[in-house]
Design a protein around this nucleic acid. Structure first.
Ligand code: ZN
Ligand code: ZN
Ligand code: ZN
Ligand code: ZN
Lengths: 127, 127
DNA sequence: TATAATTTGCGAATCATTGGCAGAACCATG
DNA sequence: CATGGTTCTGCCAATGATTCGCAAATTATA
């Protein structure tokens, strides 16, 4: 029990996420599937995206309209710089974070165990 | 035209947000209003919370269940450290941010114009 | 091919949030 | 303290993304 099946729909969905390096909603993935003549239901898209996130293979964020969006990314700790023009997602290391950790403890007595960051601007190509 | 009315419902909602220093959903604010015997509709709660956010008097975030939550905060640039135990929100200054700005430009050619950060952990009282 | 476990598709259900609109509240003015 | 124009509020229906339930299809294994 609890085995994992490698299925066609899952591979097709992952394929789309891998080719686009930007946050996509379930609806956008679904549309891309239809454009590629892949017959996958919207339900399966939702389930697969959530599964990728749970496995740590994708990162999710809620966009301005309140919709969940997903992007494939590495599992090591990093943050995302999102281009306002093309949506391109750049993975950013996070060394300077230690400064915040220190400041939080010194000034607020707050002990950090996690943090989230997002950067917005224009990527190298769009400048 | 376009004047602003100071009304009872708005004051009652702001009162609740001021007394609780943590992120509250519209439903939670509504329940608090009922507990205080204040007769305000859920619609008004939604409208007032969004209005506070638009005026910069409150900050909003989407919680783990996908619901919008709000907290009163100052207008100057800062970030939030959220206690995992009691939900207390601490405002955190953001000087070390310049490091990220530099790194993004140097390593990724990415030009920053905005960023978002959230910190999670345990506040001084809950440690 | 036979079998059991897992996944899929479909449609219905959920549920936070928004929209429309008639009436109530607000506030400046006389 | 009345009047009148503007702004808010409450009610309730509509929206729309996401989730659920379940029978049928797919996968893995022998
Ligand atoms: Zn770009
Ligand atoms: Zn980090
Ligand atoms: Zn705490
Ligand atoms: Zn900052």
């Amino acid at each position: 029990m609890c085995a994992e099946y490698a299925t066609r729909p899952r591979e097709q969905i992952a394929q789309i996420l891998r080719s686009e390096r930007r946050y996509l909603s379930a609806a956008e993935v679904f549309q891309a599937l239809q454009r590629a003549r892949a017959r996958v239901s919207l339900s399966t898209v939702y389930r697969t995206l959530d599964r990728l996130r749970a496995k740590g293979e994708a990162s999710s964020r809620i966009d301005e309209q309140g919709e969940a969006t997903y992007v494939i990314c590495t599992t090591s700790h990093h943050h995302h710089a999102i281009c306002r023009v093309c949506g391109h997602v750049e993975e950013v290391a996070c060394d300077p974070m230690e400064r915040f950790t220190e400041a939080l403890k010194a000034y607020h007595g707050f002990e950090l165990d996690a943090h989230a960051m997002e950067f917005f601007g224009r990527c190298a190509r769009c400048r």
